[in-house]
């Protein structure tokens, strides 16, 4: 018998967005407060897992047509790219640079290349987690 998941699905439709927003908050909090790319990525993939619980794998693939292995590859490229970027400025590998910028809406903002490295971590964590879960879920 197929049970009716309407309550779970409706709550998911709203909660999903709040969870992902919280994960973005954690991701950007990483420099000054607890948080960062790893926990942010885990939280995002947690939201997608919630989606997988509420709907089936086919629906989630329709909603998010993403090849998670490619997400891993892009994340690794981000990490290597920010590391290699330092070599162009005669600095050792993985030297990070930062500056303070006055952006029109945000006010005083510190721009740090570590954020790009963290983006790589974020993407790799999402990709790896989702690959593991989807591979296990698909096999009979």
């Amino acid at each position: 018998m197929k049970t009716n998941d309407i309550i779970l699905q409706t709550v998911t439709k709203f909660t999903l967005f709040v969870i992902i927003l919280f994960s973005i908050h954690l991701f950007f909090a990483g420099h000054y407060y607890p948080g960062g790319g790893f926990i942010g990525g885990l939280m995002t993939s947690g939201a997608i897992v919630l989606l997988l619980l509420a709907f089936d794998i086919k629906t989630v693939k329709m909603i998010l047509p993403v090849d998670y292995l490619k997400v891993v590859a892009v994340g690794l490229l981000f990490a290597i790219g920010t590391g290699a970027g330092a070599l162009f400025f005669d600095k050792p590998f993985l030297t990070h640079a930062y500056t303070y910028a006055y952006l029109p809406l945000l006010g005083k903002t510190s721009l740090h290349t570590a954020v790009l490295f963290d983006t790589g971590v974020f993407l790799v964590v999402i990709g790896v987690t989702m690959t593991i879960i989807q591979t296990i879920g698909e096999s009979e």
């Binding site: 439709k13 967005f17 927003l21 973005i24 329709m62 909603i63 998010l64 809406l105 945000l106």
Partner: peptide, 21 residues
Amino acid sequence: PASFFVGYFFGLLIIYIFRRF
């Protein structure tokens, strides 16, 4: 207002990613 706009932007981004939803 600035943090409202930042939140609105990120919300827009998430809604865009999940637009097929």
